[in-house]
């Protein structure tokens, strides 16, 4: 297992006594200890009895999990740094959830698929290249800081893609749709960058 993001946190902690935390803050960002809530709409209340997660689009057979089935997937703790395009960065956030690799392993992906759209309860969407969600770079979390993920932060479950701006980490995620072409999502179709790498300050279209 590639522990790329956990490793960043680990090394950060090891060097924490000095000023090395600054090395983990992308350009133009400031550090926060809080966890700001950003939202484009009302917080959906999703009963776990009706919650489901699907992978569809360019796959041989779509896959669907109930909450109970989803909880039985292999899951683990993740400690990652996150950066929001509104300029806050939070270090060493602790999550629990399933790797997107393990979700994608449950379907047969059409070789034409190069991108996906994460779809959320409430209508939010965000687009990602497959290359940004594989190799343990992304996960679907249902716990934050040892407790069930609260709805304002995306509960019951949210996508977390820590190496990209946090608008890519879709709250209230309900599925991934695999696609041949990159299809701009909710913010990407309104001036935000198609990929959103904080280390390159890919904030807006054209950056």
């Amino acid at each position: 297992m590639t522990e790329r993001f956990t490793s960043r946190g680990f090394f950060g902690k090891r060097r924490d006594a000095g000023t090395d935390r600054a090395d983990r803050i992308p350009p133009g960002q400031y550090l926060t200890d809080g966890f700001p809530v950003l939202s484009a709409g009302p917080t959906p209340q999703i009963p776990l009895e009706t919650w489901e997660f699907t992978i569809d689009g360019l796959v041989a057979e779509p896959m669907r999990w109930s909450w109970e089935q989803f909880q039985s997937l292999p899951s683990r703790d993740w400690t990652v740094d996150i950066s929001c395009v509104t300029k806050w960065t939070k270090l060493d956030t602790r999550w629990h959830g399933v790797s997107v690799d393990d979700l994608l392993a449950a379907v047969e992906i059409d070789p034409r698929a190069g991108f996906l759209t994460a779809q959320s309860y409430g209508g939010y969407t965000t687009n990602l290249p497959l290359t940004d969600v594989v190799n343990n770079q992304a996960f679907v979390a249902w716990q934050y800081d040892g407790a069930p993920l609260e709805p304002p932060h995306g509960g019951p479950a949210r996508l977390v893609v820590p190496h990209l701006y946090f608008w890519k980490s879709a709250k209230w995620v309900r599925g991934l749709r695999l696609m041949e072409k990159d299809q701009p999502g909710f913010w990407e179709s309104l001036g935000y960058h198609i990929r959103g790498d904080p280390w390159r300050e890919e904030r807006y279209s054209g950056d």
Partner: peptide
């Protein structure tokens, strides 16, 4: 409080306008 501004209908809560300021 998001990356942009979203205005929703006070009756059905669908999006009426949304914009991003760069």
């Amino acid at each position: 409080h998001g990356p942009g501004t979203v205005l929703r209908c006070c009756i059905c809560h669908e999006i009426v306008m949304r914009w991003v300021r760069t």
